[in-house]
Write a protein that binds this DNA or RNA. Structure first.
Lengths: 185, 185
DNA sequence: GTCTATATGTTGATAGAC
DNA sequence: GTCTATCAACATATAGAC
């Protein structure tokens, strides 16, 4: 029966993992079809174009990040929220070293594409940037915007380097330094 | 005459610019041939495979960076060298905002490829990492490695964010913060 | 060394039976 | 809704004349 089919979800899940590992351009619809167990021709019933799959992946990663930020926002004070957020990169350090940041890699790749997806690159980064900037504002910092930029820059920088060196330890070291920086404010 | 032909150089120059703007995977041999004014079939006289072009681009960017670092190394003390290096991202802030860091974008893309080029990603980042780490060692810092990681992380982070937001001003702001950090050590 | 023509393989996408 | 067969476009690479 149509309504009980989970094919769409399986397609998105496969696409998300494959794109994380190999990038959007490098991931073919054939790869996604095979990995999800959905015949190639049937993929087009759920997504009219590959770009539409891209939008679904962007949307999924955006929502996942919003969800994480919402969790962190429940901490009592802004500093605790920022520090709690830093637990996440440590938790997924392996994935960061293997594939890079799910937001950063996609942002970098999409910004090079001649596609409407290109505009989404900005949004991907802005999610965390605006949240962290807001936390610094709540701390009464006049330079909240720059502190926010520094915070996200640390996260993106450590992910890219950990990925290049294939070394999860880089994440631990850099998060530790970022923690100390936040605590010192 | 064969020896006076500059086709190889033109091919590398075109390839480098196109790959900077659109990424390696997205840049076709046809694009490179057209941009450099070399017929498609003739490209293969200079490069047997696309991967070989990739190696040439990696090599070129590596040498360019080594050259820049050699210039900076002539400054009197380690702090001055690090500060002088920071002049460069400011100088090319437009390109960084438009295309990202020539080393970082390539590193991120290649690390996702199933190619021998994948190994080169590590080297691209290590060039600046080892140099900056060495400068911090000369400053007598026991945590030189982590300071080096922080330095490169700042550079890569600012480039990715500036590119995502398409805002060269991000480079100026983040370099200024990095300068202050270096000066405070 | 140079270039046209073309082989070969892959990819995004469609047609149409079931 | 599902799936097989296949198209059309494009990309890497080669053949071979000049």
């Amino acid at each position: 029966m149509p309504r009980t089919s989970d094919k769409r979800e399986r397609l998105i899940r496969s696409a998300d993992q494959l794109i994380l590992r190999r990038g959007f351009r490098q991931t073919t619809l054939s790869d996604i079809a095979e990995d999800s167990g959905v015949p190639l021709g049937n993929v087009y019933y759920y997504f009219k174009t590959k770009e539409e799959i891209g939008r679904a992946i962007i949307s999924g990663r955006t929502e996942a990040m919003k969800s994480l930020l919402a969790e962190c926002s429940q901490a009592e004070d802004p500093k605790s929220r920022l520090l709690q957020f830093l637990d996440y990169p440590v938790k997924v350090r392996r994935e960061l070293a293997n594939n890079g940041c799910p937001l950063g890699t996609l942002s970098y790749e999409l910004s090079h594409l001649n596609s409407k997806l290109c505009d989404s690159a900005k949004d991907l980064i802005n999610i965390v940037l605006e949240w962290s900037t807001h936390q610094f504002e709540l701390l009464g910092r006049a330079d909240a915007r720059q502190l926010g930029l520094q915070f996200v820059s640390n996260l993106q920088g450590m992910s890219l380097i950990a990925n290049a060196l294939k070394d999860p330890g880089v994440v631990d070291e850099m998060v530790e330094r970022t923690r100390a920086w936040i605590a010192s404010l």
